Computed example of a mutant assay.
Amino acid sequence: MSTHERWTRLLEILGNQGRIEVGEAAELLGVSTATVRRDMEELARQQLLTRTRGGAVLSGVAYDLPLRYKTARQADEKHRIARAAAGLVPPGAVVGLNGGTTTSEVARELATRADLADHASGTALTVVTNAINIANELAVRPYVKTVVTGGVARPNSYELTGPLATMVLQGLSLDYAILGVNAVDPKFGAATHDEGEASANRAMAERADKVIVVADSTKLGKRAFAQVCAVAEIGVLVTDKDAPDELVEQLAGQGVDVLCV
């Protein structure tokens, strides 16, 4: 297990339990107590947890893992999901992408597609995004027209949110909106933890002819605080092969085209 993966797992455990002792963490992670102490000290330095005598507790700030610590989670599944979602977009389309680890992978898949890169001149694809990390990666691709919304950057997700973001999105027309979310529930729909992100993502979904939600199986059947869109508004859900059959059937029964890759 790499350092990055170990930190991610430690933060996940803290998110579930609220606190953990050094010995328990060492056993769960399969490493020495000395390694766990070093990890806790580093994460405390980054203000992602608070050290206690013999362990750690959640930091006093709202607990939402920063994007850089989510990358290692379900990595293989996210690569497959991203490749499948990117394959649904034809050349010349206008695509909206919100922030997140899976949509960042979608952006990379789009940027390296041979049929797009072959366009020696002109625009092969237009991407509208409120994620500054995605814009940074796509801006160097001459065949991709990159449009960035305004807004206030959230440090956890690199997404631009607020009135500026929604105002720009409301004046645009998109062929596709590819959205990463924190949860997909058959009743509540697609949702995220932060209401500011949800508002910008909702505006993106409303301007698109088709909404494609990308979410690995760990997010299915879960509920999050703020709704992005109802199930009826989701055209395609791209997930992985571990998606529970019952949930897939419930979503498909409501008109969602579910792709398990």
Rank of each mutant, 00 (worst) to 15 (best):
S173C: 08
L174R: 05
S199K: 12
N182V: 03
A205S: 04
K210N: 11
A191M: 09
G196P: 14
V168W: 14
R207G: 02
A177T: 10
V181D: 05
A203Q: 09
D209I: 01
L169S: 05
R207P: 05
A205Y: 00
D185K: 01
V184H: 00
T166A: 03
Q170T: 15
V181G: 05
H193G: 00
S199C: 07
E195L: 07
V181F: 02
P186W: 00
V181P: 11
K210F: 07
R207D: 02
A198M: 03
F188L: 15
N182T: 08
A191C: 09
N182I: 02
A177W: 02
M167P: 13
A191S: 12
T192S: 04
A190I: 09
G196M: 11
V181Y: 08
M204G: 04
N182G: 14
L169F: 04
G171V: 09
S199D: 11
G180A: 11
E195W: 02
L179Y: 03
G189W: 08
M167C: 15
K210V: 06
G189N: 12
L169H: 05
K187V: 15
A203M: 09
K210Q: 15
D209C: 01
S199A: 12
E206S: 10
D209G: 03
R207M: 09
Y176A: 13
A200G: 10
M167H: 15
S173V: 13
K187G: 09
L179F: 04
A190N: 08
G180H: 10
A205Q: 01
A203W: 07
L172I: 09
E197H: 12
A208W: 03
A205P: 10
N201W: 01
G180C: 07
N182S: 14
A191T: 08
S199Q: 11
D185N: 11
D194S: 06
T166G: 03
A200Q: 07
S173P: 04
T166E: 06
E195I: 04
A205I: 01
D194Y: 01
L169I: 12
K210P: 09
A190F: 07
Q170P: 14
T166M: 03
A208L: 01
M204W: 00
D194P: 05
R202P: 06
A191P: 14
E197Q: 12
I178K: 10
S199R: 10
H193Y: 02
